[in-house]
Design a protein around this nucleic acid. Structure first.
Length: 548
RNA sequence: GCCCCCAUCGUCUAGUGGCCUAGGACACCGGCUUUUCAUGCCGGCGACAGGGGUUCGAGUCCCCUUGGGGGUGCCA
């Protein structure tokens, strides 16, 4: 190791938002570095030019920032090892490739995808594993030029040594792969760009990465990387393969789950005649062919997320949160998400569970990482979010709520901080930020926006020959003159009514609540009326009386 | 097919050979509190996958079986 300092990295590819699994990898790397005074590096792996999505890296950066995971080197944070985009490091890969070609550790190959497909199918039919047949003798540079001239694709393959290899993993221990298991894999594609396996090794070397913490799905790739390192004559970093993160049903958590959930919901709706194929076509504005393919053949790409969202709304399906951004939009606190995620595959030991980022840093160690894959339990996340919301000071809640409200174009984004703080405090006990809107949002809409819930009206107002309505009627003039218009005064007023009429709080508060909110749910009655103000309160009660 | 990894309540986990008649949290069930909805509080249900070893002693070590997962791409 040329550097004594621990250096670890998170290396996402810019193909969309940051996935929670990726966020967990980023977090572990981050914690490991912070704990050990190391450097945390962010590198964008954009060697697959066709799959890159414009602006995706910015979204990933935003999500990491939202979570509070900051890097020491990376896009926008200069370091001595940049650039931090693989697309800007092409010459490095080319040089490394030339070196391997020159030493005979890599060679040119000219097979078309079709030819390879045929070989793979044959192998499958024969129930044997596919291994790329290494040509003998190996093609020369001249052969490569000739192939290129013929219009054949030219790639570079790594000549895998015929020897067993043992990987020492910091979490899993020694893992041995027998000789002859690997075949000669591609390191440079026909478009000249390196594959992941090659770029990752070259970059980790140049960036002097000392520790590679990555998902366990990469364990089987590690021999490839170590063989390349040996051929290049460079050191091997320490590896730590993190347990995977699954859905609650044990399937792999993926972006496809969103399509899957909505597809199922739409299918059910059609089956129950709540929806027709024609409606699906109309809703999405897509061609009926595209819709059919999406519906039947699981061709996710046929519909955009926007179109899928429309279908979800129509079919009454909730799209599952998969990306960090989804959880942000759903109204989770980043500190809760972070706390939840860190406990999948790691624990500080004992009964400790609730951890701030700083506590995680203090407690983090590689040897407490589990080997077992964990499931992403949304119920537990919800409970954890409630805990964090309950414990959060009002200012923090205001800040988080504004972020959420702005992101969701909520009408409550317009409220001033002081009001917002009081509203948030009056709703304490909520699980996610939108719960606050569900409970108190109506108080900040126009009076005509109040829709009276039939059941609530029947139960609270109309029952007993309209006892509730009568109550409201008698309350109205007193409310007109009540002074001062504060939560305490209003609560006191309601209590007085109870005492003088011998009724329970609910008998008085509920009719008022339904009158002003249309539903039997709102903050405490005093708070509810204060948020509304006297004029709107009276107006809404009068409007309600017309429902009689 | 082949290679690799994994295995404690439904879920996340504590447990690193005796402290384990296996602890906590979420969920679930029951009760209490409460002006609504939520909260909050109390209690309950509930696991070492199976079989062999090793050991005075195994959830903890070894082997097999079973089960789950990952890889086997000119994706990362």
């Amino acid at each position: 190791m040329t550097s004594q300092t621990i250096r670890a990295r998170f290396a996402p590819s810019p193909t969309g938002y940051l996935h929670v699994g990726g966020a967990r990898s980023a977090l572990f790397n981050y914690l490991f570095c912070r704990r050990n005074n190391g450097k945390f590096i962010l590198r964008i792996e954009d060697t697959d030019i066709d799959r890159n999505i414009v602006g995706a890296e910015q979204k990933i950066l935003d999500d990491l920032r939202w979570l509070g995971i900051d890097c020491d080197e990376g896009p926008g944070v200069d370091g001595a090892f940049g650039p931090y985009f693989q697309s800007q490091r092409r010459d490095t890969y080319d040089a490394a490739c030339q070196k391997l070609l020159a030493s005979g550790d890599a060679y040119y190959a000219f097979d078309t995808n079709e030819e390879l497909d045929v070989l793979r199918k044959q192998a499958e039919a024969a129930k044997t594993g596919f291994k790329y047949p290494r040509p003998d003798p190996l093609p020369t540079a001249a052969d490569a030029d000739r192939a290129r001239a013929e219009g054949r694709p030219v790639v570079v393959r790594f000549k895998v040594p015929d020897e067993a290899i043992t990987i020492h993993d910091e979490i899993l221990g020694d893992v041995t792969f027998a000789a002859g298991e690997l075949d000669d894999f591609v390191i440079v594609k026909s478009n000249g760009w390196p594959t992941y396996h090659f770029a990752v090794v070259v970059d980790d070397t140049h960036m002097e990465i000392t520790h590679v913490l990555r998902a366990q799905e990469h364990l089987g790739n590690t021999p490839k990387h170590v063989f390349i390192q040996r051929a290049l004559g460079v050191p091997t970093p320490k590896y730590a393969h993190l347990p995977l993160v699954f859905n609650i049903d044990g399937t792999k958590m993926s972006k496809r789950d969103k399509h899957k959930a909505v597809r199922q919901g739409v299918k059910d709706a059609i089956k129950q005649n709540n929806m027709t194929d024609a409606q699906v076509v109309e809703l999405t504005g897509a061609s009926s062919d595209a819709v059919e393919r999406w519906l039947k053949k699981k061709a996710d790409a046929e519909l955009s997320m926007d179109q899928v969202a429309k279908l979800a709304a129509a079919a009454g399906v909730t799209i599952p949160e998969i990306d960090v951004h989804d959880f942000r939009v759903s109204g989770y606190l980043p500190e809760a998400l972070l706390n939840f995620i860190v406990l999948i595959g790691w624990s500080p030991g004992g009964d400790r569970e609730k951890l701030t980022r700083d506590e995680m840093i203090e407690l983090f160690s590689l040897d407490r990482i589990n080997k077992t894959a964990g499931r992403f339990d949304r119920e537990k996340l919800l409970a954890m979010n409630l805990d964090w919301c309950s414990a959060a000071p009002t200012e923090r809640l205001v800040e988080a709520f504004k972020d959420w409200a702005t992101l969701n174009d909520s009408h409550m984004a317009a409220l001033d901080d002081a009001t917002l703080g009081r509203v948030l405090d009056s709703c304490r006990g909520f699980r996610t930020l939108p719960d606050v809107v569900a409970k108190a949002g109506i108080l900040f809409e126009s009076d005509d926006a109040v829709v009276f819930d039939e059941k609530a009206v029947a139960k609270v107002l109309a029952k007993n020959d309209g006892a509730g309505f009568a109550m409201l009627e008698s309350l109205l003039p007193q409310l007109e003159s009540l002074e001062p218009w504060t939560a305490e005064a209003i609560e006191g007023f309601v209590k007085n009514i109870c005492e003088s009429t011998g009724s329970k709080m609910g008998d008085v508060a509920q009719p008022i609540r339904v009158a002003v909110a249309g539903r039997p749910v709102s903050p405490a009655i005093g708070d509810t009326l204060v948020f509304l103000g006297r004029d709107k309160t009276l107006n809404r009660i009068r409007r309600c009386l017309q429902q009689r």
